[in-house]
Computed example of a mutant assay.
Amino acid sequence: MNARPLSGPDYLIRGFKMLREPGIRLFVVLPLLINVVIFGTFTALTLETISGWINQVVAWLPSWLDFLQWILWPLAVILVLAIVMYIFSTVANIIASPFNGLLAEKVEEMLTGEDVSGRETIGMAIASFPKSIGRECQKLLYYFGFAILTLIASFVISPLSPLLWFALNAWMMAIEYCDYPMDNHKLSFKDARKRVASQRGTSASYGALVMLGTMVPILNLFIMPAAVCGGTLMWVERFKNKA
């Protein structure tokens, strides 16, 4: 398939459109409810803290560098939102991972007309929770390795640190949501990463839009099921038949 290298955003848009499909609405509601509960709790606990962090960073500047506030404030907001929203998404994905796998299964069956041997019922999805947790832990270990490198690079080229963190988190979003259908097909996490990396432009642009969506209030409640649908579309059309 000769597709545009930066067509990743198309998959997220199509994922949002799939949320209205009658055959998968039930499987969209479950991750959505989990997202609402976690996001509401997380926002209440961190909103004031984030504001305090940003004010402290600005207060550290000497008076003769006051003009830099106009530069540091938006950069600080981007950095904090990228990290905080990634943490929120990570917690939500860990708790909702069995249901995201079930949603990916139903979307793939709708797209291909073929049965997927995965989580066939909600009860089986709940029973697969320990396995799903193990998979999410693999993703976290992978993320922490690159997070350490990004942290070191942030000290070397500090003005670019918000962009570095955003790029890392965007890449993890692509891996996160494309991995659910691959896990359903018993692909190892290493193999899943290789398939996502085989089309870096599409994967990175997809992850970047998902990451931006997690930073927008209200939209971030719907981004998880839409991203699962979009990641499954990418699996079916781009990654499934790759050796």
Rank of each mutant, 00 (worst) to 15 (best):
K186D: 12
G15S: 11
R20L: 14
I94D: 07
M215Y: 07
N2R: 14
L26G: 10
F166R: 01
P22V: 08
E108P: 11
V228P: 00
R4V: 11
P31E: 06
A127W: 06
S132W: 13
A147S: 01
L26Q: 08
D66I: 02
L163R: 00
S63E: 04
F67T: 12
T46I: 14
W70F: 14
G15P: 01
N220S: 08
M182N: 06
I83H: 01
D183A: 10
G40K: 07
F144V: 14
W171D: 08
I24L: 12
L61G: 10
I38E: 01
A227D: 10
A227T: 13
A170W: 06
F67D: 15
V228R: 04
V107N: 08
E176N: 14
H185K: 13
V196M: 05
D183W: 10
N35A: 15
L75Y: 01
Y180L: 04
S205V: 06
E109N: 06
L6Y: 13
A104K: 02
G101C: 11
S205E: 06
I24R: 09
R20G: 10
S63P: 07
D66W: 07
F129R: 07
V196A: 02
P217H: 01
A125C: 03
P225Q: 03
W53Q: 12
F99E: 12
L151Q: 13
F88R: 05
P62V: 12
A125T: 08
E136W: 02
K242L: 11
W73C: 04
L164A: 10
I71P: 00
V216C: 09
K131D: 13
V36F: 09
A192H: 07
S97Y: 08
R14A: 09
P130S: 13
S158F: 15
S128G: 13
W171K: 08
F99M: 09
S63Y: 03
E21D: 09
I122E: 01
R238V: 11
F42T: 10
L212Y: 04
D179I: 00
L75D: 07
R25H: 05
F239V: 14
T112P: 02
G213H: 01
Q69Y: 02
R238F: 14
A167F: 02
T202V: 10
I148C: 01
E176F: 01
F99I: 15
L81N: 06
V29S: 12
F16G: 11
L72A: 06
E108T: 12
R200M: 15
S161L: 05
I152H: 00
A125N: 04
I83N: 03
N184K: 02
A82G: 09
